[in-house]
Design a protein around this nucleic acid. Structure first.
Lengths: 217, 217
DNA sequence: TGGTTTCGGAACTGTCGAGTCTCGTATATG
DNA sequence: CATATACGAGACTCGACAGTTCCGAAACCA
């Protein structure tokens, strides 16, 4: 699906030089299949067909299915608009709650849900393929946790919250709940549910309280 | 591994009548393999070998690998000592914190970690096998969440906490963090980490505070 | 335009594992 | 002791999929 129409619109890109953007098309196709059926059910043929490519083309560029998948995840486009060192640094709104809510952009939620599907699809491989585990956490988990951490550190620096709170734990609460919901309630975590988590769990845990009537965004 | 010695001690149980306890041995073996390598890497031969059984014996009792696994999870022994309607009802210690900490028995933690490994091993199959999903949530997730819910409802009834807290959300925090840690930090959640979650997140969220010096158990 | 290169497609090979079948054996029953 | 039955072990079939090879087409370049 992804960039289907956009790709069809281009003049068929063949000929002499290896087309670098073609790599990305194939990796995107791999991610799509991965999110839909998981690593084991996914076949190289599926990816080739979806990318309108020959299987041989894939093996010309990646030596195995595992390498293709690791590369697809490692080269994943970062969904978040502003970033530094790979982690999204949310704008400073002046308050912790403002910063936290600002992190929950609709686009970020959509991309997060795709990430969750992919992670669930490769979950059972992670313990057996360290490279896969590394790529996955580096791309999909650490940046998100880091965003929370940055925002909380900011709150500590401006003396909004106590300096001895467990930033580590609280930063992982959001990602943990997102994963839990995706797995067991088989529903995409919504923007609302995350804001609700912020107001009823995270803020109380740092000694703040949610606004009575939350105007949200 | 499991009951290796105990099984060897028995006189080899063969002959006329189908041995019902043999079923459980095989299902246990299936769970062990599942926890170690995941659904897709697991082969029927592995299970047969581990249970010291012939592959034909497995197929005499279950019609397919998928059915074997679903049955193994559905028939899983409940690890928790006292239960009612499948959910463990923790003893009433008089306080919410006391009840919550009482839930975190070392044995419960050990079993929980095995459950987590199994769940991760079959994660990618859940969306494709509704029966598997049902069995898994019914056996491994719902009872745990329900334990939290019971304890919190008790705290509401004794007017220890406000009645309008989001029991649903708070009951799933523990399981969610356990899954998160098992997946991304590849370390078994410890009893200490769960108690820390209770003290720094759950209790503040319901308007209580942790004891200054926690004597824990 | 002709030569070069990469392409998509398709046919091919090799492996692996699910599921079946056979057989010698051990056990209970009578 | 004789018979019936379930067993473990292992040989077997068969389909699916990873990875390879081949070829005609298409695009770029000189």
């Amino acid at each position: 699906m992804t960039t289907e129409t956009a790709r069809d619109a281009e003049p068929a890109r063949l000929g002499r030089k290896r087309d670098h953007s073609r790599d990305q098309d194939i990796l995107d196709a791999a991610l799509d299949v991965l999110a839909e059926v998981g690593y084991n059910t996914m076949t190289v043929d599926m990816v080739a067909t979806r990318a309108k490519a020959g299987k041989a083309t894939l093996y010309r560029r990646w030596s195995s299915k595992a390498e293709l998948v690791v590369d697809a995840i490692a080269c994943m486009k970062r969904p978040l608009p502003q970033e530094r060192d790979g982690t999204y640094v949310p704008p400073d709104t002046g308050t912790l709650r403002g910063d936290l809510v600002a992190m929950v952009k609709p686009k970020a939620v959509t991309d997060s849900n795709r990430h969750l599907k992919i992670m669930i699809g490769v979950a059972s491989m992670m313990s057996q393929e360290p490279q896969l585990f590394e790529a996955l956490t580096a791309i999909m988990v650490k940046p998100r946790v880091e965003s929370y951490r940055v925002v909380m550190q900011r709150a500590i620096d401006r003396c909004e919250i106590r300096p001895d709170i467990d930033v580590e734990l609280l930063s992982s609460l959001g990602p943990a709940m997102a994963m839990y919901r995706a797995m067991y309630e088989q529903q995409a975590p919504s923007r609302e549910s995350i804001i609700h988590l912020i107001d009823t769990v995270i803020l109380p845990a740092v000694g703040l309280s949610a606004p009575l009537e939350n105007a949200d965004e």
